[in-house]
């Protein structure tokens, strides 16, 4: 029994030694030097690349196409294999990824300390603090008067940002007054200002497994993240366009948020040689 334990202890020591040396055998890493890293949010639908206007089928068996799909990514944190954490400065850590805008799908972070990164954490949506900040702190994609925001990622009647927005057409959705069979999902809710209400702020950590995003001065690795929109409509609750064609600020929205936290998946990394 003793032997078993000492064996285990030795094993742990060796392991930790190995993982320690690993960092040491790469002497080129100097956290004081800065590089860049790009997160590529690649929207897909199941096995296909997502294209606005193309037909797909959800888990409930309903055909649909999207004419809008966009979401906030914020509060990004990166972790190296030797557990150093890099937190992107708060004011620079808000991004709006839009399917209609390819450039918005590439989030490039600058001034990142050199390191072998194996974990990426981000918020899907906008944290509650920023939701209540002075208008001077709402710049860039958070600027409610910015034309890029014109498609309304903000509820003006119930102050707060919309975190994820998906709109499209499904022949199973009921026809509206204009005859169109639209579905609209505007998911937000930061928990309430003076009274508690729904909180759909979700945090996601993506583990790169055995892969490393090697950030070095002058090198910009690209972490490829796939975002499967079908998972927004399936999971613990399968979403039917027929029964829930419109979900906005409502208790049901928490089911969609619980689904979409699972639509983000790490795929691969490109390291620059």
């Amino acid at each position: 029994m003793n032997f078993k334990y000492s064996f285990l202890a030795i094993l742990i020591v060796i392991c930790s030694f190995l993982s320690c040396t690993k960092a040491q055998v790469e002497p080129e890493i100097d956290p004081n030097r800065k590089g860049e890293i790009t997160l590529n949010f690649d929207n897909i639908a199941g096995t296909k690349d997502l294209k606005l206007g193309e037909n797909y089928t959800n888990a409930a068996g309903e055909q649909f196409n999207l004419d809008m799909f966009q979401y906030y990514i914020s509060n990004i944190k990166l972790k190296t294999e030797d557990c150093r954490e890099y937190v992107v400065p708060q004011d620079e850590s808000y991004f709006l990824v839009k399917e209609e805008d390819t450039k918005s799908q590439l989030i490039t972070l600058k001034n990142v300390p050199e390191g072998n990164y194996n974990s990426v954490t981000f918020t899907i949506g906008v944290d509650s603090l920023r939701n209540t900040m002075d208008v001077s702190k709402r710049t860039g994609v958070l600027d409610i008067g910015n034309a890029g925001m014109a498609k309304g990622m903000y509820w003006s009647w119930n102050s707060g940002y919309i975190f994820v927005k998906a709109e499209g057409i499904s022949s199973q959705a009921p026809a509206g007054p204009d005859g169109q069979r639209k579905f609209r999902y505007h998911i937000g809710g930061f928990g309430g200002y003076s009274s508690k209400t729904i909180n759909n702020i979700k945090t996601k950590t993506l583990d790169l497994g055995r892969d490393r995003a090697k950030v070095r001065q002058g090198k910009n690795p690209e972490v490829h993240i796939i975002v499967d929109v079908l998972k927004m409509f399936s999971g613990a609750t399968n979403i039917s366009f027929a029964t829930h064609p419109t979900v906005m600020f409502s208790p049901f929205s928490v089911n969609i948020a619980a689904n979409y936290v699972n639509m983000f998946e790490y795929h691969h990394v490109h390291n620059e040689q």
Partner: peptide, 25 residues
């Protein structure tokens, strides 16, 4: 009480379809 900051108030009537029906940008 849907709006909690006077500075954020005006966006609502500007963008409401039955008030000013405009966009802030």
């Amino acid at each position: 009480g849907g709006v909690f900051d006077l500075d954020l108030f005006a966006v609502s009537p500007i963008e409401a379809h039955n008030e000013m029906d405009e966009t802030l940008p």
